[in-house]
Amino acid sequence: MENKIVAKNLNLWYGEKQALKNIDLDIKEKSITAFIGPSGCGKSTFLKTLNRMNDYVDNIRIEGDVILDGENIYADGVDTTILRKKVGMVFQQPNPFPMTIYDNVAYGPRIHGIKDRKTLDKIVEESLKDAALYDEVKDRLHTNALGLSGGQQQRLCIARCLAVEPEVILLDEPTSALDPISTLKIEELLMELKAKYTIAIVTHNMQQASRIADYTAFFLIGEMIEYGKTDDLFSRPQDERTENYITGRFG
């Protein structure tokens, strides 16, 4: 498979504190890559470097390259608007805007200049269908999205992300606030979406990683310890620290 994103020798500091150390990692196209590791090891930080959501953090310093389809996203003159249209992000806590369901999904397309009502209607419907939410909300598209349940809100956030037709979707523990059924729905959804999209997901749930991910990377205190096919990593970990973590001996 082709590499969609390549991180090369990536180092990141929050002030004096180094949060990522020499990360080298390829994310393969049209597959699911999971990042696992104990709390505070830098998974979210790494995920955010992939679409430059770290730009707004004070006192941050980033060295190294992140290459998307052969182009360095940290090069001068990169338009983050276009970058984030290609590389969308879904956050740990569902964060719909305080607007109607429809306006939430239409938000992204509107940024990128789509105004035609019919086109928007179509995008909203398709995105909600792709996010397996359409049937539950089709009669209340014009009510406030904050009235949805947590699981529905998270699927709405996924729909909002899909609506801009990204190429890569980054998800930061998207199911950690959800019940098992909503979690399974989102997992199924991701499995379907990988036919069209490249997906990178942070998760604390190792069953989840082994269920859905094609590749898994294990992080520990800012370093990437091990990376490989999910089955290999879980059944034949090369590094003792990985083995300790996945067998629950620490972390």
Binding site: N51, M53, Y56, T80, T81, I82, L83, R84, K85, G88, M89, F91, Q93, N95, P96, F97, P98, Y107, G108, I111, H112, C157, R160, C161, V164
Partner: peptide, 14 residues
């Protein structure tokens, strides 16, 4: 909430 800012910037809003 900061999450609103993140959400908007995260899908390419200026």
């Amino acid at each position: 909430p900061n999450s609103y800012r993140e959400a908007a910037l995260g899908i390419g809003s200026t």
